[in-house]
Nucleic acid binder design. Structure first.
Lengths: 148, 148
DNA sequence: TTGCTCCTCACGTCACGTGAGGTGGC
DNA sequence: TTGCTCCTCACGTCACGTGAGGTGGC
């Protein structure tokens, strides 16, 4: 092991921990969003540096990525927290145990919700396609120079 | 023509005008949203009844539908107003005229924006699918009763 | 008169954006 | 010392939600 040295520009740590700037950049969210998610209990930093800087591990990055991916479905942050906490509970539970089976049932409900919202969104995308086509028609109509 | 009689429950008018409740129901938006769109100059009622009730014609319903369909793309109401007003201008302009050709150029830029946001959304939908699959895997793993 | 839909304030909420002023390590 | 990234308030914004109190036509 390389020991607890290094960290160029204090951007990343030997432990694989990263500052909020790196995390936000990687996932594609604003610093404000990440901090806000902490405010509402959706994403807690793994730890803090001596100077008070938030430091995040890979599990937090994974969690943040899930959050970002769920955004287009229009879940509230509270609903996302519910689902993500459920997943964390699931990771700790023994498969087949009573607790795990109860979790699976709840999880199935969440999955149904995800799928149904996904289908809604897909229908809306189809509507967007029709819109784009009619916009193109309109544009060609307007630009018509009578030379064809 | 049947003359200016009727209107059961004052819900619709002979002119094809409808009250806000009917409009909102048809398009699938809240009364508050429709009123808010008027506040920001995005959708003006065709007229008002004697009692002050908002009345909307088919063109307004069409416009509201476009607004609803653009929502998943994440345009701000101001950006939508820009596009919709552009379409209205286009409907009034003579095809091939200088004004119409300028409009067509602007419209093409808007179309590019719509298409690029649409593709972004599609990529996010793919991510959602992967998410749903891993949720299902997790659920089956938890529910495993060792009996298969 | 009752019931329904509508009306206008106006304050609340959610998910952040945006400075303001300050700290901390190369 | 300069430059960069980070910090904590705290107020602003966007797109509505949600009553509060009142009106209007079958």
């Amino acid at each position: 092991m390389a020991g607890g040295v290094a960290s160029r520009h204090a951007a990343s740590d030997d432990d694989g921990l990263v500052q909020i700037g790196v995390l936000a950049e990687r996932v594609g969210l604003s610093l404000r969003s990440v901090r806000y998610y902490e405010e509402v209990g959706l994403l807690t930093p793994t730890t803090r540096s001596v100077g008070g800087f938030r430091l995040y591990g890979p599990e937090q990055e994974e969690r943040l990525l899930l959050i970002k991916q769920m955004k287009p479905l229009g879940f509230s942050l509270d609903e996302m927290r519910e689902l993500l906490d459920m997943l964390d509970d699931g990771a700790k539970a023994t498969p087949g145990s009573k607790k795990a089976r109860r979790l699976a049932v709840e999880l199935d409900r969440e999955i149904d919700e995800v799928v149904s919202r996904r289908h809604e969104l897909e229908k809306q995308l189809d509507a967007v396609d029709r819109l784009a086509r009619s916009l193109r028609t309109m544009s060609r109509h307007l630009a018509a120079t009578d030379e064809d």
